[in-house]
C-alpha cells in the first residue's frame, strides 16, 4: 500500500481524501487541517490519523506521498517541506503565487527524483485527451486561432468571506478559474508566453477580479483568446470549452463532447466531411472509485502510478504548472498597462 497524507480538508481536500480512501492501493495515513471544526469531525467519524500541524504529520506519519490542498499562499512552504523530507507531492492548483518559487521547487523535486504533480484535472478528461491526439495527427491542417473559455457560478453577489475573495492570497477568477483554462491551452496547443489587451473585470468582488479576457500568444507563434468568468450563473457548474480553428476544419470541445468539422473526410480516423460528434461516454475509461467525474479519480491514479513506477513521466508536473503561474503574472502585469 502507498501511504498518502492530505493537507487541507476544504472542498478539494475532501474530494481527494474520499477518492484516495476508496483507492485499492492507497492507505490514507494522515489528514491535516487547522480548522478545529473539520479536524474534530474527522477524529470522531473517520478512521484516519488526524493532525493539525502539517509538519508533524510529515515527520510522524511515514508517508510516501502527500496531497496539498490548502489555500494557495501556503503551497510554496508546504511543498518545500515535503520535498525536503523526501515525500512525493501532489499539489492543488494554482501551484504557487510567485513563479520563482515554482522554478525552485521544480528543480528541487527533479534533483531528488520525487514525483511532482499539480491538480490540473482537464489533462485527464477523455474529450480533451482526444483533442490532443487529433491535433497531434494534424487533422485541422494549419491551426491559426484558438479560444479557451471557462464560465461558472461562483461569485454571484456582492459579499464574500473566504481566501478566494482576497487579493494576494491566490483568490480571484484569474488564479482560481483561468488557471485551468491557461493550463488546458498549454496542454493542447503549446506553451503560452505573452499576453496583450488583458481586461480584468470586477463584477461583484471588491478585492479581486471576477472575469478575465485577454489575447495570448504561444511559444510556437500561435495566438488566440482567453475568456473566463466565474460570475456567470447561466452555467450550473464550471464549464470549460476550447475551440481550435485550422485551415482544414475546426474543433469545439468541452468536458462532455467533442465536435469536429472537417472540409474533407479523414478515413483513417473514421471522420466524415462536415460535422462529427464524439461523446465522453466513448472516450472515458472506468475508474476503480468514482466520486465526481472520472478525471478527478484518474489524476490521483496517475499520481499513485508515478510513485509506484519511478520511470513514468508525470502528465501535470510542477514544471507545467509553473508555466501557468508565470502566465498569471504576465496577465496581471499586462492588465495594468
Amino acid at each position: 500500500m502507498i501511504r498518502i497524507g492530505i493537507i487541507g480538508l476544504g472542498k478539494m481536500g475532501l474530494s481527494h481524501c474520499a477518492i484516495l480512501g476508496g483507492h485499492p492501493e492507497v492507505e490514507v495515513a494522515g489528514v491535516c487541517d487547522t480548522s478545529s471544526l473539520v479536524i474534530d469531525g474527522f477524529k470522531k467519524y473517520s478512521s484516519f490519523p488526524c493532525y493539525s500541524d502539517y509538519k508533524k504529520m510529515i515527520k510522524l506519519a511515514n508517508l510516501d506521498g502527500v496531497v496539498i490542498a490548502s489555500p494557495t499562499k501556503f503551497h510554496s512552504d508546504m511543498v518545500d517541506f515535503a520535498l525536503e523530507n523526501n515525500i512525493h507531492v501532489f499539489c492543488e492548483k494554482p501551484f504557487v503565487l510567485n513563479a520563482k518559487d515554482g522554478v525552485r521547487l521544480t528543480e528541487l523535486a527533479v534533483s531528488k527524483g520525487l514525483v511532482n504533480q499539480v491538480g490540473y484535472h482537464n489533462r485527464y478528461l477523455g474529450t480533451f485527451e482526444e483533442v490532443k491526439r487529433l491535433l497531434e495527427n494534424g487533422i485541422l491542417g494549419e491551426v491559426y486561432h484558438f479560444m479557451g473559455e471557462s464560465y461558472g457560478p461562483v461569485v454571484l453577489r456582492k459579499k464574500g468571506g473566504t481566501w478566494r475573495s482576497e487579493k494576494n492570497q491566490g483568490g480571484g477568477c484569474l488564479y482560481d478559474y483561468a488557471s485551468h483554462t491557461i493550463d488546458l491551452v498549454h496542454f493542447l496547443l503549446g506553451k503560452p508566453v505573452s499576453a496583450s489587451g488583458t481586461l480584468l473585470k470586477n463584477i461583484f468582488s471588491e478585492g479581486v477580479e471576477d472575469a478575465v479576457f485577454s489575447s495570448i500568444k504561444l511559444e510556437n507563434g500561435l495566438s488566440g483568446q482567453l475568456a473566463v468568468n466565474w460570475s456567470d450563473e447561466t452555467h450550473r457548474k464550471m464549464t470549460t470549452q476550447i475551440t481550435v480553428l485550422g485551415t482544414e476544419g475546426k474543433i469545439i470541445a468541452d468536458a462532455t463532447e467533442l465536435k469536429i468539422y472537417l472540409k474533407e473526410a479523414i478515413s483513417k480516423e473514421g471522420l466524415n466531411k462536415g460535422w462529427n460528434i464524439k461523446y465522453l461516454t466513448d472516450l472515458t475509461e472506468n475508474v476503480d472509485f468514482y466520486l465526481r467525474g472520472e478525471e478527478y479519480s484518474s489524476q490521483l491514479d496517475h499520481f499513485i502510478a508515478c510513485i509506484k513506477d519511478a520511470g513514468t513521466e508525470n502528465k501535470s508536473s510542477f514544471k507545467n504548472a509553473t508555466v501557468t503561474d508565470e502566465m498569471i503574472t504576465k496577465l496581471l502585469e499586462n492588465a495594468k498597462l
Binding site: 475532501l14 474530494s15 481524501c17 474520499a18 477518492i19 484516495l20 480512501g21 476508496g22 467519524y45 473517520s46 478512521s47 484516519f48 472509485f289 468514482y290 466520486l291 465526481r292
Partner: peptide, 15 residues
Amino acid sequence: NVITDLLLGLGMTEF
C-alpha cells in the same frame, strides 16, 4: 451519489 460516495470514500459510515 456525490454525498454517498464522499462518505463512502472517507469511511464515514456513521453518517
